[in-house]
Amino acid sequence: MPKLKTKSGAKKRFKITGTGKVKYQQAGKRHGMIKRTNKQIRNHRGTDVLFKTDGDNIIRFFLPNS
C-alpha cells in the first residue's frame, strides 16, 4: 500500500504545536483595513489556537491513520 500524503492545503495553513494543539493565522487582515477599527486590526494580529474539536478534525489531514 502506498504512503498516505498530508493535505497540502492544510500543510500551508496550519501548524501543530508540541502539545498537539493546532495553530492558525487569523483571517480578516488581507484588505479592506479602512473599514475595520484599530481594535479589530490589533486583535487579528499574529496566530491563534483552534478549539480542541476543530483541531482534531484538522489533525486528521496531517495524520490520516490516527
Rank of each mutant, 00 (worst) to 15 (best):
T19V: 06
K7C: 09
G9Q: 12
R42K: 15
F51T: 14
K39N: 09
G18V: 01
T6Q: 07
L50E: 14
D54E: 14
K5R: 04
R36I: 04
K3E: 08
K3H: 05
R36H: 14
I58Y: 07
R13H: 13
F51K: 15
G28T: 00
D56C: 00
K21A: 11
K15Y: 07
G32T: 03
R30N: 12
K52N: 15
G20S: 10
K12F: 02
K11S: 14
T19Q: 07
R60P: 03
I41W: 01
M33H: 12
T37C: 03
G18R: 01
T6Y: 03
N43K: 10
M1K: 09
F61T: 13
N65M: 13
R45E: 11
V22A: 01
S66C: 03
K3I: 04
I41P: 00
K5F: 04
K23P: 02
K29P: 00
G18L: 02
P64W: 06
D54Y: 02
M33V: 05
H44Y: 08
V49S: 03
R42L: 01
F62G: 05
T6S: 05
A10M: 13
N38M: 04
K12A: 13
K12P: 00
L4Y: 08
I16H: 09
P64R: 10
R36P: 00
S8L: 12
S8R: 06
D48V: 12
R60D: 14
S8E: 12
K7L: 08
R45K: 14
A10H: 11
K3D: 04
T6D: 02
H44A: 03
N65E: 12
D48L: 02
M33K: 08
Y24E: 07
M1H: 05
Q40L: 01
T19F: 04
A27P: 06
M1R: 11
L63V: 07
M1L: 06
K15H: 05
G18K: 07
V49I: 15
K5Y: 04
M1C: 06
R30I: 08
Q25V: 07
N65G: 09
G32E: 10
K21D: 14
V22Q: 01
A27Q: 06
N65Q: 14
P64C: 02
G46N: 03
L4M: 10
S66G: 07
V22K: 10
G9K: 12
M33Y: 11
S66W: 03
K39Q: 09
R13T: 00
G55H: 00
L63W: 10
K21L: 14
K23G: 05
N43V: 05
K12N: 04
F14H: 01
G28K: 01
Q40N: 02
L50C: 13
K11H: 13
S8V: 09
K29E: 03
R13L: 10
G20F: 05
N43S: 12
Q25H: 12
L4W: 01
I41E: 00
P2E: 07
F14E: 06
G55Q: 04
L63F: 14
F14N: 00
N57F: 11
K52I: 05
K15E: 02
P64I: 12
N43C: 02
V22G: 03
R60Y: 07
P64G: 06
K29V: 10
F62K: 10
